[in-house]
Every structure is written in C-alpha cells, then in structure tokens.
Design a protein around this nucleic acid. Sequence first.
DNA 1: ACAGCCGTAGCAAGCGCTTTCTATCGGAGA
DNA 2: TCTCCGATAGAAAGCGCTTGCTACGGCTGT
Lengths: 369, 369
Amino acid sequence: MTVTLADVAARARVSPATVSRVLNGNYPVAASTRERVLRAVDDLDYVLNGPASSLAAATSDLVGILVNDIADPFFGIMAGAAQTQIGGPGDGSGRAGGEKLAVICNTGGSPERELTYLTLLQRQRAAAVVLTGGAVENPAHQAAMAAKLAKLADAGTRIVFCGRPPLPESDALVAALAFDNRGGGRRLTEHLISLGHRRIGYVAGPRERTTTRHRLEGHREALRAAGLDVLPAGGGPAAGSGEQAADDPLVVHGPYDRRSGYESTLELLRRAPDVTAIVAANDTVALGACAAVRDQGMRIPQDISVAGFDDLPFSVDAVPALTTVRLPLVEAGARAGRLAMGKENPPPGGIATIAAELMIRGSTAAPRG
Amino acid sequence: MTVTLADVAARARVSPATVSRVLNGNYPVAASTRERVLRAVDDLDYVLNGPASSLAAATSDLVGILVNDIADPFFGIMAGAAQTQIGGPGDGSGRAGGEKLAVICNTGGSPERELTYLTLLQRQRAAAVVLTGGAVENPAHQAAMAAKLAKLADAGTRIVFCGRPPLPESDALVAALAFDNRGGGRRLTEHLISLGHRRIGYVAGPRERTTTRHRLEGHREALRAAGLDVLPAGGGPAAGSGEQAADDPLVVHGPYDRRSGYESTLELLRRAPDVTAIVAANDTVALGACAAVRDQGMRIPQDISVAGFDDLPFSVDAVPALTTVRLPLVEAGARAGRLAMGKENPPPGGIATIAAELMIRGSTAAPRG
DNA sequence: ACAGCCGTAGCAAGCGCTTTCTATCGGAGA
DNA sequence: TCTCCGATAGAAAGCGCTTGCTACGGCTGT
C-alpha cells in the first residue's frame, strides 16, 4: 500500500539506514549511492512518514503560531510574515526537504483555547511556538501559561513572543518582541493635545489584556503630562482605586472589533457630548467609531477627530485617511519566524521593544473654534 | 525525563494497553479502573506523544487549511470559521481530548507552495485538508494537484474544497463548496447597467485563477445580455481568441491587493477616460480603486461608481459604503470545517454552490447626465 | 453443578524511522 | 608487503503507542 523507507532501500539496493541518511543529509553518503537512493525515492514517489520520523528522532518539524483572531488582519499579517520564514520551500526545488510546517492556531482570545493549543502542540513535540498579540492579564492563566511554556521549553520547543510582553516568570523563552504600545499611545494623544484637544474620548479594547492596558497607559501619560487627566494617578476625586481607569467617563471598553467601536462611540458621545477627539483601541475599532460619529451627523475631522492604532492596510484608504500608530507587523512577524527557526539570535536580554510610529493623516485636526 | 504511557500505567497499576484505552475511550474499561488511570494521568501531568500515537494508529489529528493569503481577511474569516469547527475544546473541560489541531497553511498563491504544503500534510498523515480560495488554472499544476489529492485521499485524508471549484478529475474528494462568483459578478454588472452605465471598467484579479475568470465571465455575461460587450463572444472584430478577454481595453488584470487596485484603476482611467463605473475584483482592490479615483479629482459616486466583491467587514465603512457582492464566508468556512471533521454529510453530488448576494450601497449611482 | 459467556485486562507484535555501534573496503604509511 | 585508518554501509535496538488476540473470573442458563 504505502511506500516505506524499506521499499526505497530495496529498490536502491541499500539498507534503510542509508536511505534515512540520504534524506536527512547529516551523515556522509557516497555520491553514487545518494544518487541511486534519490532516484528510487522519485521512482516510488516516496513520502516520509512524519509521525514515525518524529517518534524516532524525538523532534518534529511543526511550528505553531498562536493568534487571537485570524480574521483580523493584524494577526493575519504577522502570522503570514512569520510563516514566510518558516514554511517556505524557498529553494524552488520541488523537494520538500528541510522546511517546517508552520501552523496557525486561532485562539479566539480565549485563555482555555490558548492552553489547549499549547497542549496539542506539546503533543506533537513542536519545534517552536510563536505567541502573538496581547496576553490576558489573569494571574491564574498567566501561571498556567508559564508552567506550560516551561514544559514545552524543557522538551526542546523554542518559544517566541511576538507583539506580546514576556511573562514575568519566563526565563525559558528564546525571545520576546514587544511593541511599544505605551509609547505609541502616548505620542498619539500628545499629537491630539498639541492640536488643541482637551476633551479626548477613548474607545478601549477589552480589559485584562496587556495591549489594552499599555495603550491606555500611554494615553493617560500624555493626558497627565498636559494636566488633563480626569483621574489623577495620585487618587483624585474619584475612588482612589489606583491606576484603575474603569471609572473614567471618557473611557469605554469593548472588544477589538468594528461593532464595538461603533457602539462604544455612541455610548461615549452620550456620556460626554463635548469630546472633540476620539482615540480608538485599534484601526478596526476606529472604523466603527468613524461610522458612529458620522451617523450622529458629525464630520471628521471638522467636528471631531478620530485616531486609530496599528496602521492596517485599509487605514490609509479610510475617508478621511486615518491618523494612527504604525506597527511594523511584517517585520516583527518575519523576525519572530526567524527566531523560531533559530536563524537569528535572540535580542540581548531576550527582549526587544519594537518602535511604533505616529502616522498623522486626515482624520485628526484642530478642534473647532 | 518525559512521562510515558508506561509510567502512567505503572502508577495506576494497570497495563499500558488499558491506559491507552482509557485515553481513547473506544473500548470498555471498568469505571473504577478508568478513574484510577485518569488520576494517574493528572498526577503525572502526562501528555500523549502525538507522533507515537499517530504512528501506531496510522492517523493523526491534524487538519490542514490551505489559504492563498492569510493577511487577507477574505481567507482569515473563512479559515477562522473552519477552525472553530475543528480545533475547539468546546466542552470547556480543560482536557484536550478528541479535538483536532487545525493548522492554517499560507500558500501565498504559489502553486509550488501549495503542493509543498500538501506533501507536508501528507507526511503528517493529516486527517483532512481544506483548500480555500480560487485555484490556479494551469494544466500541469492541476494535474499535479489532482494526483497529490488522490494520494492523500487514498491515505484516508478527507479533502474539502471551500470557495473553490472542484478539479475536473477529482472524484476522491469529500465535498466542494463553490461560491457563485459568476452569478454574483453578473448581478453586480446588471445592477450597474440598470443604473444607466454603459462604459464599465473592470479591475480584474490575476489571470489564470478560477475566481478571476468566473467573476469576469459573470461581468461579460451581463454586458453581452445588454449588448454592451466590447469583444463579442462569437469572435468579433478583435482576433478571434475565443473567450479570451485579454484584449478588452476596459479590463485590467493585477493581483488581489489594494495597490494593484490603485494602479490598475489609474491605467484604466488613462485608457478609457469615459468610463462611468468601475468594478473591482474584490473589496480590497476596490479600496485602491476608490483612492485612485479620488486622487484623479473625481467623486464617488457622482463622477464615477465603484463596486467591489466579497463584502468584507470594512466595506460597509468605506465612504461612501461600497456596493459589493456578499459571500457568506463564515457560513462556508464553518461548513467546510464540519465536512472536514465528517460531522456533516457532503452535499448531493459532492458539490454545493453557495449563493452570492448583491449589496447595493452608496458607492454606485446613476451616471451623471 | 457445569458449560458457556460477557465483561475486562494483559500480552506482545508491530507502526516506520533514526541512530549507535559494528563491519568492510581501499588505500596510505612503514 | 602488512598494518592501520578513514570513509561508508549495514545490523539492530529502540522511540511510545495501538490493537488483535488471549486470559481470567464471575454469572447465567439448564
């Protein structure tokens, strides 16, 4: 039925061991023998049995890429870029040799699924795992993740974080590429402030996510520096619940999607009709925010400015083009892929912060009057 | 070092066979024994060795999803939907049992990579493969694909096409879900014609792709029915190269991306400044087309109408909202996932055509005058 | 009371490959 | 010419799991 190594060996008149060595190329084999084996492989249309190979060698050629939402281009772009560094035949030769199978796993932002995928990957003895996007800031989950990742690392799986801050306890990981969400958020709001905005609404992402928190912290830093913070860090008039921004009337939380952007914006406009600018958690949310603003009969940016985050491809095509913070997703994804493959050395200290660049476009302008 | 089945067996004081049967749950095991085994599994934090298991059982729990471009939400949405039917723990129990590992493979639209991924998946003895998106219409490649798929099917891998027409020779596949690209394209152009447009430009996708051809064929059907076809089917004034639309000055081909939409539109406008409407290969291309139209100082839809295809989430947020053809990507992806899991019966005849719905929005209007 | 069964558990034979160790061959050095 | 060594190839022992078949009780039926 299926062709095995032994069949190839028989046809090439060598031992199975030799065929294996030809295929793996890590042991001297005479050129003539190699040729004979290769021909036999072609003749028989032999395809290596991955599980058998992985079992014997105790490693596999699987690399997992975990994403929160594959329907979101933010993740699609990073994952695609990572995959180009991992899966590619590259050499153009039809032979499927050497490359790994990069697999994208969609967690849907669910901690359980994240853990489940990690287990599945552990089962497969994955060669590496790339974790993208923000993490959930739940202590129990973080501990579970740290434990799971430690186990994976023990088993020889390389771990790479991409666009995600490293876990506090993690020392087993190869590398972490973290986006400067805080700095980007700060510069974005500084830009708005410099335009003259004083009442700035913020449509934030879901609570308990690092990305959400960091961007919001950057925003508040800028506000505070300008003396505009509604809830002073030092426990202002509101209940002194520390850094907790939950009570800020100018901040509304919701998922990272268009619909949430729309609805949260409506809510924000209801709460504070005097805002002159709205910062969205990301570009997708910003699109929803724009729609809401327009549906309320206001113009962008004349009546109200709107800004996003990420600079996804469609942002430049929005009308007016969206002011946002550009994150080098392709570069980061590709680098993560290379790190996962061990093709590149991890950054010093294991962590690299990736700069975010402010992109000023038409959706922000000075407030009226 | 690593915990094996035998370790669990020893701790539970049963044979490895029994542990295996408890874990696979396809053989009667006394409740008390099962409990003991399960506790041992938990105690030892045992994780099944996937390769070993796949080797012994001659099957794996991998399901491959091939996409052309994961950075494109069109594919991201379908893949994500498929994955929800495949990978999900669903039951909420932490135990990773029963579910498969859905892996998304990004071919980048390259035939070679497509084949390579199929080989990789074949290596892993994948349980199923879902192929999404249009196929390349190259005879050699199609033959290679058919051969490869036949081999996969022989090995017990289920094959599902999603948003992709079945290969002519394929009989081994489980099911094909094809979008009605032709019908959608036809209705879209009919809509434009009914508005009064007579000179309609078409920014098409890459040649040699089924999706491109079908959408364009629908467009030409509508034109022909209205007596507007530039190159009559029956071999008009142009060289009688059959259905070949290559010579139509109102059609420009390019990749399915925003940039191509922009540039092709500029080219189109140069060639035929009198067009009053532009149909784009898909929504992403349409966005580029809109930008180009605007940069030429024209307004949408007053000066020129623009239409897309797919109805991706951002299309409704374009300004003006994009008239397009809605493809039920989530439903199709989910169904493909179910078919891959064998949770759903294949459609009669193995092929189901999925309807495309015309979405009329603000980007199309009657031509001036 | 005994044969025959059903319900469980164990034995052991692989699944197809990798890899260590050993064998062989053909020179090169003495 | 004989010995020793480098370069290759083969033999064989697993890797950890699944599963067909066998074994063993305790029950039921007569």
